[in-house]
Design a binder for these strands. Structure first.
Length: 836
RNA sequence: GCCGGAGUGGCGGAACUGGCAUACGCGACGCACUCAAAAUGCGUUGCCCGUAAGGGCUUGUGGGUUCGAAUCCCACCUCCGGCACCA
């Protein structure tokens, strides 16, 4: 072989990849028109394949690589099954890192964000991801956030966006309020600082109105991971029970409580208010307990969320000196303030039943309060005293007046009925979910399009004045209010209603608002009259396959579901659920640990793409394990996949040179038939792996096996027409099956074998006739132990198989002198002889 | 504490319905090619005993069901994720 030839025959991904990327770019191969536009093919069913849009910062990391590799494989697979696939890309470009960077360096977020977007765009092109670039969006662009603001106004119009003073979570480091969902273990999800409670006036979205529908509509989803559904269920936290009113006659005040156990109402021996309860001060005003309670409130306010929720923390509290009346028996029970009652849940007040609730029991013991049993029974796991109390289970009622002797479940219903009749309570459902706090005291986000007017109140900016542009500012440093407040020229405006001087809202929106509707903008990204045309949304929605990290299980996925429902209620959308099928990819680690700059174990995909090519790097992240699970990155692993691709490349070159095209495979026998059978087996295996939850690792290993077999058999096959044809078919099939992961190499090899463009050819179908063979290997066991294997005709009868098995060379010694007591025959698989 | 998921060679992992445990890849070892190396091709590679033929053991641990269990059941251990004073 000459030297020139040798260089040419080497697999050089950079050259191959550049060649095909140019074709796809020049021809806009992955661009799809909307219905009604030229080129739209209405004979094809649609498929919306979508990966979660990235937050552009620096350059893409391995998590992005995995997400888009998986998504792209699915997109290609669907296209080759005859779907018109929409596969867009955009950037979730507002957010804190760019703003923090601006505070540190003075570089405008606009500038650093654009730079990061360019780097992301470059990488995605370099990876060869099949994106419809004509639909690209950035959530920071005025043409996008104009519609984010528009949706905000629609929600405001419907009463779904409102402003209210409430105790909220404030992150001192990020200098902004946070949504409940962004507080993890009492700390800011982003920066880890412990959050503090503040009473502030903030903007909320009324997601709690949708709590029940968010639960019910899990039924509408086709395929979501069970754990994500469970996490959302837990987060929404529905409980059934009753709201019961306890009255303080002295002060003429009603205290409703939520309880899941109205059957234990007779056992309520005291009453507890959360320290933040708005009526606490009124209750103790002018009493001798006033200062003690005030002192306790001060203490409670100082206690951080982490400490307050700490396990095994002794119960604390203070008596108010007041009593309320238990509605079922008229008993006056003392009222306490204690921080084990949370203002955020229920009504911020509880009836305490120490006989049947562990927490109330602990409080009762600490404050020496009465413990009363109202249900017979004991549970050794929970019981703390000789009486077997507290007892959380079921049993017959005692000390409960007319309900004595009844089962507590029955009494539950009857007590509810009685309360309803007396007007002292009613069945109630309570949710853990809180309204979504969406305002942020930060700069780099979509301004909330509201004007504060002394005369008119909160006035929406008229639609024709949108977008409310983010003004350019010089000082980004947080000062406890939005940096926008300093942009005086911008803040000072006229009231759209009365024309008098007024002030703009200076808070911006949580960036999760931006990403709650981006999948709709892709469908009609250049529309200047509306966020999207209803026809476009009706055609493409919902997303047929959504792909992203499980870390968004609650936040993004729940918010987007809420948006979808609210928009559908406004008749802007025809679907109730945005994402029919969800796939959550596992996290890639290195050396068993999450990648982080501080650990110095960060993998830069670009380095590997440069060294081994996009195809090898992409294929590797799909091969390292089932994509749904995490995996540990090894550099050698990428190299192994690279070697495999190079092996396929060389096979293709050799086969192209040494075989004639146009041969017929129908009469193939021997090794030619074996190779054809392997190719059809690989088709069947890979197709099944795609359909069974995207098990790409085993799909890729099937192609590796096919290539290995081609190497093993090729020297026997060269020269005969059916041998040539089998080799060409096997090589083309390998290219075809690896194409979703390695699109460049797949295109090149397929073209070399067939002269065709692979993405224009349908996904191969396995020939059932080649999936079965004439003979099968039968395993022979004696007493369940493998002793030999025998070849048998596929259609052999049980008798024939038994005969073969008993005659097997290595079986006979184990049968000698022994009584066969049982014979088990599984046709096509095994024979098990049980002897004594 | 409650709810999920996982535990298989030196490593990543495979085994689809209870039927050959360890596919595929990495690593390691050997051979061919080469003056040599790299690259490539071919082969070996779960553990223990044995020169060998062969035998025994092995899917976190202990028990059970079954002719047969990585797979089903019971108890336990470890790791990961979610929720957690939620009334």
């Amino acid at each position: 072989m000459t030297e020139a030839k040798e260089i040419e025959s080497r697999y050089e991904p950079a050259a191959v990849e550049a060649r095909w990327q140019k074709v796809w770019e020049d021809e806009a191969t992955w661009q799809v028109p909307n219905p009604g536009q030229t080129g739209y093919d209405d004979s094809k069913p649609k498929a919306y394949v979508l990966e979660m849009l990235p937050y552009p910062s620096g350059e893409p990391h391995v998590g992005h690589l995995k997400c888009y590799s998986v998504g792209d494989a699915i997109a290609h697979f669907r296209r080759r099954h005859g779907f018109e696939v929409i596969h867009p890309m955009g950037y979730d470009a507002f957010g804190l890192p760019a703003e923090n960077h601006a505070i540190k360096t003075g570089e405008k977020p606009q500038v650093s964000t654009e730079r990061a977007i360019e780097s992301f765009r470059d990488q995605f092109r370099r990876w060869g991801v099949s994106i419809d670039w004509s639909r690209e969006i950035g959530t920071h662009e005025p043409s996008y956030y104009r519609w984010t603001q528009w949706i905000f106004l629609k929600l405001f119009e419907k009463g779904l966006a409102y402003r209210e003073e409430a105790p909220v979570q404030w992150c001192p480091t990020d200098a902004t309020v946070l949504a409940n969902e962004q507080v993890v273990d009492g700390c800011c999800e982003r920066c880890g600082t412990e959050v503090v409670q503040r009473k502030l006036e903030q903007w909320f979205f009324r997601i709690t109105d949708y709590a029940q529908r968010l639960l019910d509509d899990f039924d509408l989803l086709e395929s979501w991971p069970e754990n994500v559904v469970t996490m959302q269920r837990n987060w929404i936290g529905r409980s059934e029970g009753a709201e019961v009113v306890f009255r303080c006659d002295e002060l003429d005040l009603d205290f409703p409580v939520f309880t899941t156990r109205p059957d234990t109402l007779f056992g309520a021996t005291f009453f507890v208010l959360a320290p933040e309860h708005p009526l606490v001060e009124k209750l103790v005003e002018g009493t001798e307990q006033e200062s003690a309670v005030a002192e306790y409130l001060k203490q409670a306010a100082k206690t951080g969320a982490v400490e307050r929720a700490a396990e095994d923390r002794p119960k604390t509290g203070v008596a108010t000196g007041r009593t309320v009346t238990n509605p079922v028996n008229g008993e006056e029970i003392p009222v306490f303030v204690a921080d084990y009652v949370l203002m955020e849940y229920g009504t911020g007040a509880i009836m305490a039943v120490p006989g049947h609730d562990l927490r109330d029991y602990e409080f009762a013991k600490a404050f020496d309060l009465a413990v009363k049993r109202v249900i017979e029974g004991t549970d050794p796991e929970v019981a703390r005293d000789d009486e077997g109390l507290p007892y959380p289970g079921d049993g017959p009622m005692v000390h409960s007046g007319e309900f004595d002797g009844k089962g507590n479940r029955e009494a539950y219903e009857e007590i509810l009925g009685w309360l309803g009749k007396e007007g002292r309570g009613e069945p109630a459902i309570n949710y853990r979910l809180r309204d979504w706090l969406v305002s942020r005291q930060r700069y780099w986000g979509a301004p909330i399009p509201i004007v504060h007017c002394d005369g008119c109140g909160l006035v929406p900016v008229p639609e024709d004045q949108l977008p409310v542009l983010l003004p350019e500012i010089e000082d980004y440093a947080p000062k406890g209010q939005s940096p926008l407040a300093a942009a005086t020229d911008w803040v000072e405006t006229e009231c759209p209603e009365c024309g008098k001087p007024a002030r703009r809202e200076t808070d911006t929106m949580d960036t999760f608002v931006d990403s709650s509707w981006y999948f709709l903008r892709y469908l009609d990204p250049h529309n200047t009259e509306a966020p999207w045309a209803r026809e476009a949304a009706d055609h493409w929605m919902s997303v047929d396959q959504y792909i992203g990290g499980v870390e968004h299980a609650i936040l993004h996925l729940m918010y987007a579901r809420f948006f979808c429902k609210a928009l559908a209620d406004m008749d802007l959308l025809g679907v109730q659920e945005p994402f029919s099928n969800l796939f959550t990819q596992g996290m890639i680690t290195r050396d068993g640990a999450k990648m982080s700059k501080s650990k110095g174990n960060v993998v830069s995909p670009a380095d590997f793409v440069d060294r081994y090519g996009a195809d090898a790097t992409r294929t590797y992240v799909c091969f390292m394990g089932p994509p749904i699970r995490g995996g540990d990155w090894t550099d050698e692993g990428v190299e192994g996949v690279y070697r495999f691709l190079a092996r396929l490349w060389r096979l293709s070159g050799e086969v192209a040179e040494r075989t004639e095209s146009g041969g017929d495979t129908s009469a193939a026998e021997g090794p030619a038939r074996d190779l054809l059978a392997k190719a059809h087996w690989a088709i069947d295996k890979a197709t099944g792996d795609f359909e069974r939850g995207f098990q790409f690792n085993t799909a890729i290993s099937a192609v590796m096996e096919l290539v290995n077999d081609a190497y093993r058999l090729k020297d026997d096959l060269y020269g005969s027409p059916e041998g040539d044809a089998a080799l060409r078919f096997a090589t083309a099939t390998a290219a075809s099956l690896i194409f979703p992961f390695a699109p460049h190499l797949g295109s090149e090899v397929y073209e070399q074998m067939t002269g065709e463009r692979i993405w224009e050819t349908p996904w191969p179908e396995a020939d059932p006739a080649l999936l079965v063979s004439d003979t099968v290997e039968i395993v022979v066991q004696v007493n369940g132990k493998l002793r030999d294997r025998v070849e048998a005709p596929s259609d052999a009868t049980e008798e024939q198989l038994l005969e073969l098995a008993k005659a097997a060379e290595k079986v006979a010694p184990h049968l000698e002198g022994k009584q066969t007591v049982k014979e088990i025959v599984v046709p096509g698989k095994l024979v098990n002889l049980v002897v004594e």
